[in-house]
Write a protein that binds this DNA or RNA. Structure first.
Length: 115
DNA sequence: GCGTTGACGGCGG
DNA sequence: CCCGCCGCCAACG
């Protein structure tokens, strides 16, 4: 993985596959910060593919080191059914980084990652 | 090729 | 602020 930050903004076939591009980009989200699906898609070089980002993340193995839990939707909400195991898992990982939810929502003004 | 399916986004009501 | 509708787009059957 020799890709550097600059390649995030200028992807041009910098990655072999769409999934690789997404996973790598997600890996750049700093601890304590979050990013929306659409934002990740744009940085990876595939604007308007927010939905596909979720699909790509769903392919990750359970033991992955990629911080998939730092990706939330544009409303600042975890994109899993409230109360589901996945939901609780993601919420816990975020809390571990001091990212708090207020009424189920994360304050994007405060926690969203900006390049 | 075509219709369906999502860990989505934005806008209007 | 909370829906709901519609647009988007990569997989999958």
């Amino acid at each position: 993985m020799k890709q550097k930050l600059e390649s995030i903004t200028q992807p041009d076939d910098a990655f072999p596959t769409y999934d690789e591009a997404i996973w790598t980009t997600v890996g750049y989200i700093p601890k304590g910060k979050v990013a929306t699906y659409g934002y990740i898609a744009a940085l990876a070089g595939f604007p308007r593919t927010a939905r596909a980002v979720g699909r790509a993340l769903s392919k990750l193995p359970d033991n992955t080191t990629i911080p998939w839990f730092r990706v939330i939707n544009a409303k600042g909400v975890i994109s899993f059914p409230i109360g589901s195991e996945k939901y609780g898992c993601q919420k816990q990982k975020l809390l571990n980084e001091n990212i708090v939810l207020y009424n189920g929502k994360i304050n994007l003004k405060r926690y969203h990652w900006e390049i």
